[in-house]
Structure formats: structure tokens, C-alpha cells
Amino acid sequence: MNGIDILARLTERFGTAMLASHAEQGDHTALVERAALPEVLRFCRDDAALGFDMLMDLTAVDYLTYPGREDAPRFEIVYHLYSVPHNHRVRIKAGVEEDDLVVPTAVPLWPIADWFEREVWDMFGLRFAGHRDLRRLLLYEQFEGHPLRKDYPVSKRQPLIGPRN
């Protein structure tokens, strides 16, 4: 299926939950409501025509200092899906407000989401409801804060040993 058909199929199934869609630079993207995420992702994986059996990437973006997005949700969680039998891709995004940083987990659908979600928790501080073991992946346990957020300065060091330079 080409990208336009994929988005059409998602829209026909999820009508109101699909907030927006675009195909800039050839990447077909759908912005959905956060509450509808588990259903949308399950449909993407289980529907025969879509067949997205591979979760290529799961990441987040912090739109705190993005010009022109002041009233949009601060974070956005981004799923890149790929289908091995059909060889097509789609990007699913959902906005996450700053005062409610919880996203339903995708681990029951794709086991790789375990580590991707741990990394998002580590770097951004978004919790995943239903994740069995949400601990830091790349940083050490004693680290405070979430470094990929825009309000974390790049050179603020928290050494475990050695001087605080």
C-alpha cells in the first residue's frame, strides 16, 4: 500500500482520534490522540492490509522552545513502524502534555518497546503505564533529571566520582 492509502485506512477506522496527518518529504505521518494510541498501534500491527510487524523506532521530542507551538502539548511521542511483508512505513505521533506525562506502553505489541521506552523515560521523563520495569537505560540510577529535555543544559555534570567540573 502506498502511504496515502495507509493514512486513509487509519482515518476510516479511527476517524475522530486522528487529529492530523501529513506527508512532508514523503514520510506519511499520523497524529493521533494519546488515549487512542494502544488501539491504533494494535490495529497497525494486526490488520492484514497494514501488517506493521516491526517497531522500527520509538522516541520523543520536546517542543518546549519550538517557535509557534506554544499552545500545543510539550512532548510528542513518535513511533516509526515498518511492515516486513508489505514493505511500507508509517509514522504515528501523539502529543503528551506536560502535566500528564504518562503514555500507554507498547510492550505487549512489540517486545523491543521495552528498551525504547526505558530510553524515553531516561532521556525525557515520560512514564509508560504498564511497563513492568521502567528504569534508566543509558544513564546511571543516581542521575537526576532528564537530559534531552530542552531545559537541561548540555554541560550540567553530575559525576559519580571525581570533581564536579
Binding site: 544513564l139 548540555v154 566520582i161
Partner: peptide, 13 residues
């Protein structure tokens, strides 16, 4: 790598 994750020279430890 002047950032939050890197030791700025091992002679600090």
C-alpha cells in the same frame, strides 16, 4: 564531548 555524560579527562580520577 563537553556534556553531562563525559568525564573531562581521566586525570580527574
Amino acid at each position: 564531548y563537553d556534556n553531562y555524560a563525559t568525564v573531562q579527562g581521566i586525570d580527574t580520577i
